[in-house]
Design a protein around this nucleic acid. Structure first.
Length: 953
RNA sequence: GGGCCUGUAGCUCAGCUGGUUAGAGCACACGCUUGAUAAGCGUGGGGUCGGUAGUUCGAAUCUACCCAGGCCCA
């Protein structure tokens, strides 16, 4: 007896069930490299409309993490899908190479050696460090399956890029938008240097805590009387501070009490800040009307040991704005100002403000037009012109300030105060805030702010839309852009100081000189080549006319570097143009790269360098908590690649809603692996049915295909259209949903299952089987392309397993779209099968019931009697012969009830019984009779015929 | 503390401008299959739509507050 199984057309394919991604991924990537795939895609799309995603440069420091991987995969989805939609969509990756983190790492690696190195040598070490991480990251990005111009990326430390940065700065300079001003930074008086936030360590420290009285200035008496009438009767001239007298203030004065833990900043006090929304009150204390925040009065009274009576008057902080208070030590006034950082947690609710010695103080000072006053030298000594304290180091000055205040009767209380205070990470001495000379881009110059806001509102499309509100708020409220840093690894600001009068000079000509030198030698030249090379002919100091200069040592904020990428890259590279269509980064870049790129774009060309900005969220753990080393909940992309494959990571990115925070953890990865397997298996069975199919010779014309095959194509066309649209909308989860439903529900559970019998048991070359193959081929060929941007390796592997001539890689192909899918659509067929599907669902329920009752086992062991009426009966009668196949049973008896059925309100009736007849040993259906012939014994007529066809060939 | 955002089954997602018993896939349980087999098919259980209070004839969908979380500031 022959093994009938061997006469069936059982599926076979080299497209294995197990993916072996750990092997196939590196192989595919090597193949792409070998065939120069990226370049071939460029050549193939030459002349097509450009779609320009401009890469935001990751920082060339450390291994890539899951967030970097997410970002690059999203970009790859955008780029690949646009290429397949018919655009010329290049991908030019970039790296951000300058900046503090690298400087600090290199610093640490060099150790004491650094002391002997020149700045230029140190910069060379930084460059080598950055180069090393560019290589490491590039390797990992390629391993993720990302296609791009990896051989020639852009780097912010490239000579020409450095020149472009300086030229971009030059545009601001020429328009008069750059100025030199002052701003407080962390300053170590021991190391005599500015410190970045990352170089500051918070350590416990004991500071003096003092409460100081500032009397209201006489000139403000009338105004206060007007604002707070209840106080009017008490308003008389305050007593003048007197060096000789420690007597309390005159009984009829008004004062405000402040609290500070840095007495040495009192000489630099220029203002007192009040909260606009807090309630303040004036209390009679030994005859003086003392103003403090109402909620803090009790604690202040307790601290100072003074008796605060009932409030004489109450008012909001706004009542204090622009009143003048007498400085407790000097013959000048402190201005009453409003600030929302004033708290009720400690102190008096009135905050001592020295704009040259605090970040908040500085902002408030700028807002009220105060001098950024910081009369200290680099070692933290008061300059000689400061009365009482000239020459004193600030920490030595503390007790002297207290003493001077006490002498004048202005020191109400003094105690030790333990708190966490910033220290220098190198020498571990406490640091101070010190206003230093810095370069700024003025937000109001040339309407920079207003033009940026109008670009945000009117030109750029923000996806999601709330991105607009976010960056709008930031631009609207940001202070002038401080673009200078006192560091070594970056692009120097090519400014000169006049050696005669000290005037800082920065002109367009100076900038262009530097740019020309940088073009040729790189920015290291600033530290190595003679100063004359950087001084354009005829340069004279605008202040004194001097012609001798020395270089400044400030470098540019690295945000200016990366913010200039559109200027450094877009105009110069092949397949590029200015501006870009799209920037795509994490939502933190509203503050970062989008922000700086926009400002640079306005400065250089008067518009935003992008038309669309797409943002994604952050990867968090399965509980929605941020990933961190200390929590141990991080997922490393390298580990996922090793354990599951980059395809899993890519699939994960494609199925989540990247606009919000994205969860990732063990279960999610496990689910993703399951999803991958499901897709792979269904695709595998489709290909496996094509092992003997020639799409040219074997294809059945559409009109002659079986109805269910045409339905499958109609369903596929619907799915393809939806997917192509979703790519265009950057709606990747919709792609997964559509593809997954089509693959699992329409293909696996329905079409493949229902067609199985025909594909396996019919004559291999029968038109019915070829009809099915035609559908399966079209579908799997289309799915390979539709899913290629996501499952780039798997679909390329599939592409190679498919019969027929085709492009060397799926990534060079185009999506199924236009006429390719339009000709397959058929709403009528979809309708018809929706009804058939509903009937099938109900038959399944009945079958399951009988299975539970153990009347039947497999569906083929059952037969169905189906009574119905109306429209549905006509439809079912129309495809009577298809019904056993549709239900997967051996026989269907259709009974039409006139005038009833679902349309008439009566439910259809389904009766399931054990199938009559005998079981065909080849196709396993129960049939009335089987063959008796020796060669075909036990086979049904259909199988006999199928075998005859094979034999006949 | 402030600005922006998020919270639907174990997981990933749908649920348009408020309107019948809140859906899909996966996972899970049970049955079938052994000619997709470290697969496949069927059936089933599972959600007070973060919480509370409102607006409304009616809210997952609108408002306020609260809780939890994220990004950026301070």
């Amino acid at each position: 007896m022959p093994e009938w199984k061997d006469t069936c057309n059982l599926p076979r394919t080299a497209f294995s069930m197990k993916a072996n991604l750990q092997t196939t991924e590196p192989e595919a990537i090597a193949r792409w490299d070998a065939m120069a795939l990226y370049g071939r895609i460029r050549a193939a799309r030459q002349g097509a409309p450009l779609f320009l995603l401009h890469d935001g440069p990751p920082y060339a420091n450390g291994e890539i993490h899951i967030g970097t991987a997410l970002n690059k995969i999203l970009k790859d989805l955008v780029v690949k899908s646009h290429n397949m939609a018919g655009y010329d969509a290049p991908y030019l990756p970039g790296w951000d190479c300058h900046g503090l983190p690298i400087e600090l790492k290199v610093d640490r690696e060099l150790g004491p050696k650094k002391k002997q190195m020149s700045t230029a040598d140190f910069r060379r070490a930084c460059r080598a460090y950055a180069e090393k991480y560019v290589d490491i990251q590039r390797r990992d990005f390629k391993r993720l399956g990302i296609l791009g111009l990896w051989d020639d990326p852009y780097k912010t430390m490239a000579f020409r890029y450095q020149a472009s940065i300086v030229r971009a700065l030059g545009r601001f300079v020429e328009q008069g938008m750059v100025y030199k001003g002052k701003k407080p930074v962390h300053w170590c008086t021991h190391c005599r240097t500015a410190l970045a936030e990352a170089e500051v360590e918070y350590e416990p420290h004991t500071s003096p805590s003092i409460y100081v009285e500032f009397p209201l200035a006489e000139s403000s008496l009338p105004e206060l009387a007007r604002r707070v009438p209840a106080l009017a009767p008490r308003l008389t001239a305050p007593s003048a501070p007197s060096a000789s007298s420690a007597a309390p203030a005159s009984a009829s004065s008004v004062s405000v009490l402040i609290w500070t833990t840095t007495p040495w900043t009192i000489p630099s006090n220029l203002a007192i800040a009040f909260h606009p929304e807090f309630r303040y009150a004036a209390y009679d204390v030994d005859g003086t009307a003392v103003v403090v925040a109402k909620d803090l009065a009790a604690s202040v009274a307790q601290k100072t040991g003074r008796a605060f009576g009932e409030p004489l008057a109450e008012f909001d902080g706004t009542a204090m704005e622009r009143l003048s208070f007498r400085h407790p030590l000097y013959a000048r006034d402190a201005l009453g100002v409003l600030a929302d950082y004033v708290t009720l947690e400690a102190g008096t609710g009135a905050v001592h403000t020295a704009p040259g010695h605090g970040a908040d103080d500085y902002r408030t000072g700028v807002k009220y037009g105060l001098d950024i006053y910081a009369p200290l030298d680099a070692g933290g000594h008061f300059v000689e012109s400061v009365a009482l304290f000239g020459g004193l180091q600030v920490f030595d000055a503390n007790p002297r300030v207290e003493a001077a205040l006490a002498e004048r009767g202005r020191l109400w209380h003094r105690e030790d105060y333990d708190h966490s205070y910033p220290h220098c990470w190198r020498c571990h001495n406490p640091v101070i805030f010190l206003a230093t000379a810095q370069w700024f881009i003025a937000m109001e110059a040339h309407d920079l702010r207003a033009r940026a806001l109008s670009e945000i509102r009117d030109r750029v499309r923000w996806i999601p839309a709330w991105g607009q509100a976010r960056i709008e708020g930031m631009i609207a409220n940001r202070p002038d852009w401080c673009i200078s840093r006192q560091r070594a690894w970056g692009v120097p600001i090519p400014a000169m100081d006049c050696t005669t009068c000290g005037q800082a000079v920065l002109t367009g000509a100076l900038v262009e000189r530097a740019a020309a030198v940088f073009d040729e030698f790189g920015a290291d030249a600033w530290y190595e080549r003679p100063v004359e090379e950087f001084i354009p002919g005829g340069l004279a100091c605008p202040a004194c006319g001097g012609t001798s200069f020395e270089r400044e040592s400030n470098i540019l904020d690295v945000w200016f570097d990366s913010g200039s990428s559109h200027e450094a890259v877009l105009p110069f590279r092949e397949h590029h143009r200015w501006p870009a269509d799209l920037y795509l980064e994490g939502s933190d870049q509203h503050r970062g790269w989008f922000h700086s790129s926009l400002l640079v774009g306005i400065g250089t060309r008067g518009r935003a360098p992008f038309d669309q900005v797409l943002t994604h969220g952050f990867v968090v753990d399965e509980q929605g908590r941020k990933m961190s080393k200390s929590l141990g909940n991080s997922v490393a992309p390298q580990d996922v690649i090793k354990q599951s494959g980059a395809e899993i990571l890519r699939l994960w990115v494609s199925m989540v809603d990247y606009r919000e925070d994205i969860r990732l953890g063990k279960e999610i990865l496990a689910r993703t692996v399951e999803a991958y397997r499901k897709i792979r298996n269904v695709i595998r069975v489709l290909v496996a049915n094509l092992y003997d199919f020639d799409p040219v010779a074997g294809a059945v014309p559409h009109e002659r295909m079986l109805e269910i095959d045409r339905w499958a194509l109609a369903k596929y066309a619907e799915c393809a259209d939806r997917i192509v649209r979703a790519y265009d909308d950057y709606d990747y989860p919709a792609i997964f949903q559509a593809a997954s439903t089509f693959i699992t529900v329409d293909m696996s559970a329905f079409y493949v299952d229902v067609t199985k019998d025909r594909m396996y048991t019919f004559g291999a070359n029968s038109e019915a089987r070829r009809s099915g193959q035609t559908a399966m081929f079209t579908i799997v060929d289309g799915l390979a392309r539709l899913l290629a941007p996501i499952l780039s390796v798997t679909m390329d592997e599939l592409w190679r397993a498919l019969p027929g001539g085709r492009a060397p890689s799926v990534h060079m192909a185009l999506f199924p779209m236009g006429d390719e899918t339009a000709r397959l659509r058929s709403p009528a067929l979809l309708d018809r099968f929706a009804t058939l599907g509903a009937v099938r669902d109900e038959v399944n329920l009945a079958l399951e019931q009988k299975r539970q009752e153990q009347v039947i086992k497999a569906n083929l062991s059952a037969q169905v009697r189906l009574e119905t009426g109306g429209e549905e009966a006509r439809l079912l009668a129309d495809c009577r012969d298809f019904l056993p196949t549709l239900f997967g049973v051996s026989h269907v008896e259709l009974v039409t009830r006139s005038g009833s059925g679902p349309d008439g309100g009566q439910p259809r009736r389904i009766t399931v019984t054990r199938a009559d007849g005998v079981r065909c040993e080849r196709c396993w259906r129960f049939v009335p009779a089987v063959s008796d012939e020796p060669a075909t014994r036990g086979l049904c007529a259909r199988c006999v015929e199928a075998l005859a066809l094979v034999a006949g060939h």
